[in-house]
């Protein structure tokens, strides 16, 4: 039987967030809701990356004056995942800003937030 550890549960939560995010981005019709779904998706990816590096009984991967330098490499949680997450949070904010700006411009032109109306092709 699978043990319900924190790591397992956070993987489940991240899978749920990713699924909800993708479903929301694909199937919801409101542009703002699509953007909120995107923030959920990127939260899910972040959670997956952080829980990847975690293991039971590890220590925080920040070298504070009290910790012993010799045992630090074995005990510290993996730092590369959180490194990516920090960047992913920043990229998520800038992507959201671009999406909101484009949505505002398109709303001014069409007067609606419905993706099915706004994003309809007008090619000749």
């Amino acid at each position: 039987m699978i043990e319900l550890t924190l790591q397992f549960l956070s993987f489940m939560a991240s899978a749920l967030l990713i699924l909800i995010g993708i479903a929301g981005m694909l199937f919801l019709d409101n542009l703002i809701k699509k953007i909120i779904a995107f923030t959920l998706l990127s939260d899910g990816v972040n959670l997956a990356l952080v829980s990847l590096g975690y293991f039971e009984g590890g220590v925080v991967a920040i070298l504070t004056p009290g910790t012993s330098v010799a045992e630090f490499p074995q005990n510290a949680v993996l730092i590369f995942g959180p490194g990516i997450v920090l960047t992913n949070i920043v990229i998520g904010v800038s992507t959201t800003a671009v999406l909101v700006a484009l949505t505002m411009v398109l709303y001014k032109r069409y007067g609606t937030l419905k993706a099915s109306k706004v994003l309809k092709g007008e090619r000749k």
């Binding site: 990847l52 995942g81 999406l99 032109r109």
Partner: peptide
Amino acid sequence: ESISQKAALKYTFFSALSGAGMAIALA
């Protein structure tokens, strides 16, 4: 033009999706 703003919005949505996919592949 409105068509270019639409193209940019659509492309950014898909970039958000596939950027997340690439982060998972990386993980």
